[in-house]
Design a protein around this nucleic acid. Structure first.
Length: 179
DNA sequence: AAAGGATCCAACCGCAAGAGT
DNA sequence: AACTCTTGCGGTTGGATCCTT
């Protein structure tokens, strides 16, 4: 999985880490601590950039990392925190011991996001996602006097965000003239 | 069994913020 | 104040694996 090994013109290796590289990095950090990432690869005998070493350590090699599937509780925590913090993955990761921001971000994009969409919840705003039918029902309920010709005119708007905005405006401003 | 589309996730990239000079 | 260097973050990519037809 991942990318095929590449070396750039400076001899810096890219792509998947080998077990030997993992071992070198782990042993070096165990002896000296993470310290200066820029000088670490050279000192540890790795042909990697410091950025790559830091990423590998923080997302994969750190001993406190909890691997494996997310529990239901963790998933609920992520959803709750995301509703407050948005895409602040590092802040969310800080509340989930043993989980990395990258892991949470991946899990969000591949599992949770789809689950929320399936439930009709907007994964960005965490608000129920209204479709055209829901919108028409809502508008009719909110405004008894709203007539069908106006409703059909609104439905020609394709952008669901625009439709939701319209519904919000109508709900909060009963004085808006409806011709 | 084979093809190809979908899914998953490790790793990369670009940018911004903070530290040091 | 201005510049450079380093680190950290969020978004995106690439390719292995899984799934469906």
């Amino acid at each position: 999985m991942g990318r095929s090994p590449i070396s750039d013109k400076n001899g810096i290796k890219k792509g998947p880490w080998t077990p030997e590289e993992d071992m070198k990095l782990t042993q070096y950090i165990q002896m000296h601590g993470p310290g200066n990432w820029r000088s670490l690869p050279k000192n540890a005998g790795l042909e990697r950039c410091g950025k790559s070493c830091r990423l590998r350590w923080t997302n994969y090699l750190r001993p406190d990392i909890k691997r494996g599937r997310f529990s239901f509780e963790e998933e609920e925590t992520i959803i709750q925190l995301h509703s407050v913090l948005g895409n602040k993955w590092s802040a969310i990761a800080a509340k989930l011991p043993g989980r990395t921001d990258n892991e949470i971000k991946n899990y969000w994009n591949t599992h949770i996001r789809k689950r929320l969409l399936g439930k009709g919840i907007d994964p960005v705003t965490h608000a129920p996602h209204l479709n055209l039918f829901d919108l028409s029902s809502s508008l009719i309920n909110l405004h008894d006097q709203f007539n069908l010709s106006n409703l059909f005119r609104l439905q020609t708007l394709v952008n669901p965000e625009a439709l939701r905005l319209a519904a919000t405006l109508l709900a909060s401003n009963p004085e808006i003239p409806r011709t």
